[in-house]
Nucleic acid binder design. Sequence first.
DNA 1: TCTGGGGTCCTAGGACCC
DNA 2: TCTGGGGTCCTAGGACCC
Length: 424
Amino acid sequence: MGCRDQRYSFLVIALADCNNFYVSCERVFRPALRNRPVIVLSNNDGCAVARSNEAKALGIPMGAPYHQIKKLCEWNGVTVFSSNYELYGDMSRRVTSVLARFAPELEIYSIDESFLNLSGVNTPLLLSQRIRKTVVRWTGIPISIGLGKTKTLAKLANRLAKKKKTGCFEIRAEQDDILKQIPVGDIWGVGHRLSIRLQRVGLNNALRFAQAPSSVIRSIGGVTLERTQREITGIPCLEMEQVPQSRKNTCSSRSFGRPVETLAELEEAVANYAVKATRKVRSEGSLTSGLQVFINTNRFREDQEQYANSRTLAFDEPTDDIIRVVQNAKVLLRSIYRKGYAYKKTGVILLDLIPKRSQQTLLFEEHGSPRRREFIDAFEEVSARYGQSCAFLGAQGVKQKWSMRREMRTPRYTTCWDDLVKVF
DNA sequence: TCTGGGGTCCTAGGACCC
DNA sequence: TCTGGGGTCCTAGGACCC
């Protein structure tokens, strides 16, 4: 088996994962909530996306729609928060900056997870415990650390670490008895669908998965799953990515706080998402080559007629011109809008982003006249400096009755002067 | 009444070309 | 009855992740 492979015996990858991250962020500023059930809701106060251990013990599943668990929460005194991404983003930066002190090679994988390359460290488990203690002392966020030869093994180890008192766990090559106890669906890269198909052919735990012929694995899940299998046997297939690669698409979308039927309101929403998405692209110094707009009704409402559609266009020249994106987004929206439906969600996706400096200009046409560009830059600066309420496009609307619900959000303690904690 | 948002990669199949 | 072969490019859809 691959994990006996001597070539990789020196490798140690650590996965540091914040425990119940959003809940932990809220608890930093509300210490009285420690050891009490707490959940954080998704946008629109839709479903539970983070749960404290106490909330998990009450049987609140990940992703549970809030309206289904509301009673349960009230009966059990669960504290419920809307999500506060300004706070979580800032806490995340603090955690990763502490982690970075301990490893020369660090990959920020998500808002609450980082991979660290600890290869060459004599006692990685001891170091992990030190890292853990430092992070919680300096940021208030508890983390768990899993160690293994590959990212996939580190992920698995992390899952086991969450159950340990020390919060750290290492999977070694020879620990078949451990792999045997791990359901195949717990492996990183094996989701719901693949897990069913693997179990159907008897590959129900991580050890069986590791030992299966690679041809079988490939026929079930293609090259991606075959890579996962190699990773489980200790052969690295996923590299550390220290420099985040620039993204290829970006999306801005929201569900509405209530059903929306009129084209006028949808246009307002689309204009806002177009502005938001374009700003993301501008802030990264990129240009977008294409644009997609989608709309859909509420797929959970079986009593209503459903409609979903999307349309895409390619710009003849990559652009970051906010007005142009908004205008085109509205054109696309009108072409897919059908009267008589109760819409739940719309969104704008910007496609094939490219760095601004590599821009290829059109031969015979010039879209962005200097005056136009100066205007957009000035508009953006005013809006950034004095807030969106001071400079926005007419298309974005004033009232925004369709906007999302966010009724239980805590203050932005760390990123907004007005929200600083008051001691007296 | 109420069910998130934002990404990635891979593959199959169609259009088109010579 | 018989109905080229081989290549590229693009897109939609399916799978996964947090």
